[in-house]
Design a protein around this nucleic acid. Structure first.
Lengths: 132, 132
DNA sequence: TACTTGCTTGGAGTGCACTCCAGGGTTTTA
DNA sequence: TAAAACCCTGGAGTGCACTCCAAGCAAGTA
């Protein structure tokens, strides 16, 4: 079960470069409980691990689904609480999935409207017919 | 070119019921220039037409694309300015379309991550194996 | 050692898209 | 006609997700 003793540790600016999240946002994520507690150097500076980077990548995907920060924090809390929360975690993710599917349908529909409108403008350019 | 003389006119609460937009939002849309000027009764109350409803439906589609209110206002201004703005209108819509396509790709990717995570939780429920 | 750059904190500020309020006039119903 | 319901305006307030600030400590370089 033992890990490599030379585990890579990243400063906050390295994590900023790798994730695209600002230092402000990274500190804020930790403050609101969206990060598992991050290691510190002897002087108190954050030292992120590859595991932290993995978590941030997953959080990025959750953000991309449109999940609210409050729900992401709830999910992070459940992870910290341990194995007995897997049912609630799955329920949260399934709820998010339903919302993503609805959003995809809505977005696809709106894309169709956009396509038709753009097509009308293209015709308009050729014929000079009026429209809004 | 003449229209029916008995054109249906809707009060703000009727439009609220039909569109799902609140009265506050409808007034705000008008204030910021997102509506063509709405008719008024002799006493100054708004009287929306079917054309207004059509515009609101289109605006709803633009909202669904994720277009900002500022860009929707810009689009509404261009419509008011007349036919010579069709190129800029089309450019605005094409820009929005590119963003919608990017968002669809991002959302589809995030959905895949969600699917895999949920599947892992389903397995976990059966096997008792640990994970985050 | 001096200087520059980087990191720390709690708290304040920002931009967006609404959302609501106060105070008053209008329209409909009993 | 009186009460209830509806609508008006300018401006203030809200919730979200950051984003920035001040003041100070720490680390790396000439």
């Amino acid at each position: 079960m033992s890990q490599s003793l030379t585990q890579t540790r990243y400063t906050i600016s390295e994590v900023e470069a790798r994730t695209g999240l600002t230092q402000h946002t990274l500190r804020w994520y930790e403050r609101i409980g969206l990060m598992p507690h991050v290691d510190r150097s002897h002087s108190g500076q954050r030292r992120f691990t590859d595991k932290d980077l993995g978590w941030l990548a997953f959080v990025g995907k959750l953000r991309a689904t449109g999940m609210s920060v409050a729900d992401m924090v709830r999910y992070a809390e459940l992870v910290r609480e341990g194995e007995h929360t897997v049912d609630e975690r799955r329920a949260l993710l399934e709820h998010t999935r339903r919302e993503v599917r609805a959003r995809l349908a809505e977005l696809t529909d709106a894309l169709g409207v956009l396509d038709r409108k753009i097509e009308m403008y293209a015709m308009n350019t050729n014929t000079g017919k009026a429209q809004s």
